[in-house]
């Protein structure tokens, strides 16, 4: 236990403000996001992530938003287990045909008002996979999409930026 407490004390809190990363605009958006979430979402924006056919690279970077460097929960953003609790569906992958019905059912289970964010190059335009016998291509071919965050995969910073711009408009 002493080792554990010692490690906690030595490492401290490493959570960064977004200012020093790259984009001074990001910090402004972060503050704005918090304000928007506080105002329009009673302080909490719930996201249901759906992998609709991704290679899993996008999932790794979305999951990284929860690591102590980004700690996106501090802005009031939560990843939830059920679409019934969600304000936003964050969808990755080209939509595989085998996931098409499951994705639509998830969308239908999400209460209005709701937004769909297509994350990653495949979700944006089909990426390396496009439309074929097994792939519906872009998420926009299956669901109405409100925002697109391209990148293969988008970095956590790209994801924060994309989310902020969706929510701030």
């Amino acid at each position: 236990m002493n080792k554990l407490l010692g490690k906690i004390a030595r490492v401290g809190i490493v959570t960064e403000t977004f200012k020093p990363l790259t984009d001074p605009e990001l910090d402004r958006l972060g503050t704005e996001l918090k304000a928007v979430i506080d105002g329009r979402f009673a302080g909490s924006l719930a996201i249901r992530q759906v992998d609709a056919g991704s290679c899993n690279a996008c999932e790794l970077e979305i999951a990284a938003l929860g690591n102590p460097f980004y700690d996106i929960e501090r802005y009031g953003v939560h990843f939830v287990a059920s679409p019934r609790h969600a304000d936003v569906l964050m969808v990755t992958g080209p939509v595989s045909r085998h996931m098409q019905a499951a994705l639509q059912a998830t969308w239908e289970a999400t209460p209005e008002p709701k937004w769909v964010v297509a994350v990653g190059s495949c979700a944006a335009d089909g990426g390396e996979f496009g439309v074929n016998y097994a792939s519906c291509g872009a998420v926009g071919n299956v669901l109405p999409v409100d925002a697109v965050i391209p990148g293969c995969p988008p970095t956590p910073t790209d994801l924060v930026r994309g989310l902020l711009s969706l929510i701030s408009r």
Binding site: D51, G53, S54, G93, P94, S96, H98, M99, A102, E128, F129, G130, N132, Y133, A134, S135
Partner: peptide
């Protein structure tokens, strides 16, 4: 399994 079959071999 098979939900994320994307046709990689054919592609």
């Amino acid at each position: 399994l098979g939900y994320v079959h994307k046709g990689i071999e054919k592609l």
